[in-house]
């Protein structure tokens, strides 16, 4: 059986909030290393890969592989009843037809308990190849969100160009064009303001802004975001959480002239 206790419900609330507009029905695959989710959006352009490591829970117990088939809209309805600071416990049997959730207020004067019906979801897993990306950019997640939102007002697509002089986000729309160039920032006092660019070769790729703006809903999960880019392969946008947990989004590029 699964028993997983989170000190603060907000972690799960934020993760589900960040992905529920991209994917609807998906399995939470539980085993002794944690809770994983992999799902594509309906148009097969983006892929979500979530890993909530056992270390992010206290305690975490799951002695078998358990697939918890969830509708994220339904899960959101239940999670709305949890306060951010509530202690959240997930429980499920080995072959579950429901997921038990309890929310305990931090001063322990209220316990809410819900059982959510599960679904049988036949989900195909995709093999994601290990990639040595040509460019890895680490930046404040709020900055990335602002760039994507600003450029989406002008265009459907953004071209991300990483070179030795920095990283450029450029778009071309009906009303004109725009670009934002970022250079390396080293803020010793406030490391979360850093912009780090690791480059092995220059890259330039075009992506749909609609999806990038959607990924930015994960901004609350982490103060920084990492973009991993190589020519001709999907972009990886990664939000890291405490305990080695992460939320990753892969986005297929737009290719051609």
């Amino acid at each position: 059986m699964l028993e997983a206790r989170l000190e603060q419900a907000q972690l799960l609330k934020k993760v589900v909030d960040a992905i529920k507009d991209l994917v609807q029905d998906c399995n939470f695959d539980c085993n002794d290393s944690g809770i994983a989710l992999q799902a594509m959006d309906n148009s097969h352009v983006a892929l979500v890969s979530m890993m909530l490591k056992a270390e992010s829970f206290n305690p975490f117990r799951c002695d078998r592989n358990i697939a918890i088939g969830l509708n994220l809209v339904s899960l959101t309805k239940v999670l709305r009843a949890a306060q951010n600071e509530d202690i959240l416990t997930l429980k499920a049997e080995d072959a579950p037809d429901s997921l038990n959730l309890t929310f305990e207020s931090s001063d322990k004067d209220r316990i809410s308990e819900y059982d959510l019906k599960l679904m049988d979801i036949d989900q195909e897993h995709l093999g994601i190849p290990d990639t040595d990306y040509s460019a890895t950019i680490s930046m404040p997640s709020a900055e990335f969100k602002r760039i994507c939102t600003d450029l989406m007002a002008m265009s459907e697509s953004v071209t991300i160009e990483a070179g030795k002089d920095g990283i450029k986000f450029a778009c071309n729309g009906d009303i004109g064009n725009g670009s934002i160039t970022l250079r390396t920032v080293q803020d010793v006092e406030n490391k979360e303001n850093n912009i780090e660019i690791a480059l092995t070769e220059p890259v330039s790729l075009t992506f749909s802004l609609k999806y990038l703006v959607n990924f930015c809903k994960a901004q609350n999960l982490s103060k920084t975001v990492k973009l991993h880019i190589s020519n001709e392969v999907p972009l990886l946008v990664e939000y890291a959480m405490e305990g080695g947990s992460y939320l990753r989004f892969y986005l297929a590029p737009k290719i051609g002239d």
């Binding site: 594509m40 097969h44 352009v45 983006a46 892929l47 195909e124 897993h125 995709l126 093999g127 994601i128 190849p129 697509s157 075009t206 749909s208 392969v233 999907p234 892969y250 986005l251 297929a252 590029p253 737009k254 290719i255 051609g256 002239d257």
Partner: peptide, 14 residues
């Protein structure tokens, strides 16, 4: 113009 690729063109099934 540029064509949106599918993620399935890059990641293998199974």
């Amino acid at each position: 113009s540029k064509q949106q690729q599918s993620i399935l063109g890059f990641f293998s099934k199974g």
